[in-house]
Design a binder for these strands. Sequence first.
DNA 1: TTTCTAGACCGTCATCTGTG
DNA 2: CACAGATGACGGTCTAGAAA
Length: 102
Amino acid sequence: MAAATGDMPTYQIRAPPTSLPQGVVVAASPGSLHSPQQLAEEATRKRELRLMKNREAARECRRKKKEYVTCLENRVAVLEKQNKTLIEELKALKDLYCHKAE
DNA sequence: TTTCTAGACCGTCATCTGTG
DNA sequence: CACAGATGACGGTCTAGAAA
């Protein structure tokens, strides 16, 4: 896929949500953690936060990709129509030229 | 009605990429 | 270089429609 090469535009990137989703608790500073249990809880919390962020990033990524594809499909439709018109026009001009030549 | 199938959507992991 | 965000790949679930 060419997406990695930079030819995939980002259509109107929305401002990220300013507030964390419900249920996310901001942790105490790492310096205040001591016991192995606290460390484990902190690790779990970090992992869940990462998964949640990535989940939302994936959703956004798919949304943008879908939008991009729709955009391309619309462009194809427009160009096909344009092409058809030009072919008709060319045909008409050829006819005109032929009749003049007689 | 039940079973099969294709397509859409989702969550997660691994990796790439840009930024401080 | 470390980190966060973006994206490709993969496997799972759901659903609508066709076939038996």
